[in-house]
Amino acid sequence: MLKKILIGVVILAIVAVASMVMMVGYANKIKGSNEKMLTSKNASPKKALIIFQPSLSDVTSLMANSIAKGLNDEGYEVTLNYPEKDLKYDISKYSIVVFGSPNYGGKPLTVVTDYMSKIKDFSSKKIIVFSTGADASKKDELEIMEKSLNSTKPYKKVKFLSSSKKESESKAYNLGKELSKE
């Protein structure tokens, strides 16, 4: 009887690991262009770019859009998109560049970090990296994202908790507003 229970537990563990690997694999795929632009009422607005990979729960999309709304409400023209295989944007046109990734297993998605590492010059840009996840005490993914910036130090590194969406959404919106003033 104990042997059957042990075999059942092992099979269950294998299924759980396989499911997690498949979910992360799906989340880590290039989704293609999903460009969204928030235009400004200003004649010559400053520009911000937000590149993020959506999470399976869509919390990362919510945070990216909340940051964008905060920036836009302060007069910025904001472009949001998913990371793509090739660099689509001329970074020199943006004063703020934000990268966001969900956190799975303590790591950001490689589709985001690979995109970040392709950019060679972040001169005079405010670079912000953010992650979403359930564990507030672990922020290893932010360090991994920073390493993908080719020796550039991010202006801010922020972790948003998926367990408190409303609070995180407000924090993201306020971050966007703060970035426009600093």
Rank of each mutant, 00 (worst) to 15 (best):
S131E: 11
G105N: 08
K126W: 08
D58N: 09
S57H: 07
K107C: 10
T132Y: 06
V78N: 14
I127T: 13
L80A: 05
V129C: 09
S57F: 04
K147N: 07
K29E: 02
N42E: 15
A18N: 01
G133F: 07
I67S: 13
Y89T: 01
V112E: 00
V21D: 00
S101K: 01
P108T: 01
S19G: 03
L109C: 02
A48R: 10
S92P: 09
L62V: 15
I30M: 03
A18M: 02
T60F: 10
P154L: 05
K85L: 13
N103H: 02
V78Q: 15
S33E: 08
G100W: 12
K93I: 05
N81D: 13
V111H: 04
G70K: 15
G105Y: 06
I96Y: 05
A43Y: 03
N81S: 07
P102R: 08
N150T: 05
P54F: 05
P83C: 14
M63W: 04
N81E: 03
L71Y: 14
A136N: 13
K118V: 04
K29N: 00
K36M: 13
I67Y: 12
I30L: 06
G105R: 03
G70S: 15
N42Y: 14
V24G: 10
L62P: 11
S95R: 12
F52T: 09
Q53F: 00
N28Y: 09
G25R: 00
Y104A: 02
K46A: 15
M145P: 01
S61D: 11
S92H: 11
A136W: 06
G70A: 15
G105P: 07
D73Y: 14
K31H: 03
Y76A: 14
E146Q: 12
T79N: 00
G100S: 13
K41A: 15
A134T: 07
N103K: 01
Y104S: 04
E35Q: 14
P108N: 04
V24C: 10
D140A: 02
I96E: 09
L62I: 15
S137I: 09
P54Q: 07
S148L: 05
S95M: 10
N28C: 11
F52V: 10
F99M: 09
A43E: 09
G105Q: 04
K41Y: 14
L62D: 15
V111P: 08
I50M: 07
S55G: 14
V112M: 03
D73R: 13
L80H: 02
M145L: 03
E77Q: 14
G25L: 00
K139A: 00
K47G: 03
E74M: 08
G70Y: 15
V59E: 13
G106Y: 13
K153S: 08
N103E: 12
K139R: 02
P154W: 07
S131V: 10
I96H: 06
I96M: 07
S117A: 00
I128A: 09
M23T: 05
S148G: 06
E35S: 11
D86T: 11
F130M: 00
K107W: 09
T152I: 02
N81Q: 02
K93A: 11
L109D: 03
